[in-house]
Amino acid sequence: MHTMMLIAGLTDYAKRRQGEVGVRITQRTADKYERLLRYLK
């Protein structure tokens, strides 16, 4: 149950960060969030 909540929250967070590429963060940083999400799944 907690694992699914963590993955759902991280998915939302990664999507928000992807929208900030070029403004607040680099693409490389956004890719790290996506990679972490893949590892957890």
Results as ranks from 00 to 15, higher is better:
10 L>G: 03
31 D>F: 05
34 E>M: 05
40 L>M: 01
35 R>N: 09
26 T>D: 01
18 Q>P: 00
5 M>A: 14
21 V>I: 11
18 Q>F: 13
25 I>P: 08
28 R>L: 10
7 I>M: 13
23 V>P: 00
3 T>L: 09
33 Y>N: 01
25 I>Q: 08
36 L>D: 13
34 E>D: 01
19 G>C: 08
24 R>E: 14
12 D>A: 10
10 L>D: 08
40 L>G: 03
40 L>K: 01
6 L>Y: 05
38 R>F: 08
32 K>P: 03
12 D>P: 00
9 G>T: 10
10 L>E: 03
37 L>D: 12
35 R>P: 00
30 A>T: 02
24 R>S: 14
13 Y>G: 02
19 G>Q: 14
38 R>G: 04
2 H>I: 03
7 I>T: 11
19 G>R: 11
36 L>A: 14
13 Y>S: 04
22 G>A: 09
26 T>W: 07
33 Y>G: 01
22 G>M: 06
21 V>N: 06
19 G>F: 13
11 T>I: 02
33 Y>T: 06
26 T>E: 02
14 A>Y: 02
41 K>F: 08
26 T>V: 00
1 M>R: 10
37 L>R: 04
29 T>I: 15
21 V>A: 10
18 Q>K: 06
36 L>H: 13
40 L>R: 00
40 L>S: 07
33 Y>I: 00
31 D>N: 09
11 T>D: 07
33 Y>S: 03
37 L>K: 05
26 T>M: 00
36 L>S: 12
21 V>D: 14
20 E>D: 12
40 L>H: 07
27 Q>A: 11
29 T>D: 15
21 V>Q: 05
1 M>Y: 02
35 R>V: 14
9 G>M: 11
39 Y>Q: 05
32 K>T: 05
13 Y>A: 00
34 E>W: 07
24 R>N: 11
23 V>E: 11
6 L>G: 03
38 R>W: 07
24 R>L: 04
36 L>V: 15
31 D>P: 02
17 R>M: 12
35 R>C: 13
20 E>W: 06
24 R>P: 15
9 G>F: 13
12 D>M: 05
41 K>Y: 10
22 G>L: 10
32 K>F: 10
14 A>C: 00
10 L>P: 10
2 H>N: 13
8 A>Q: 15
39 Y>S: 13
8 A>P: 05
11 T>F: 01
4 M>Y: 13
38 R>S: 14
30 A>I: 11
9 G>V: 03
6 L>V: 03
30 A>C: 05
28 R>P: 00
28 R>G: 14
40 L>W: 07
4 M>D: 07
36 L>Q: 14
22 G>C: 03
13 Y>P: 03
25 I>S: 09
13 Y>M: 03
32 K>R: 10
3 T>M: 11
41 K>S: 04
9 G>C: 04
26 T>L: 01
4 M>H: 11
33 Y>F: 05
6 L>A: 04
41 K>L: 12
20 E>N: 05
12 D>Y: 05
16 R>N: 12
28 R>V: 12
25 I>F: 09
10 L>R: 06
11 T>N: 10
25 I>N: 09
32 K>V: 13
22 G>P: 12
35 R>H: 02
5 M>D: 08
17 R>G: 12
11 T>L: 02
33 Y>W: 06
40 L>N: 08
13 Y>L: 15
1 M>A: 13
9 G>Q: 11
12 D>I: 13
31 D>L: 04
21 V>P: 15
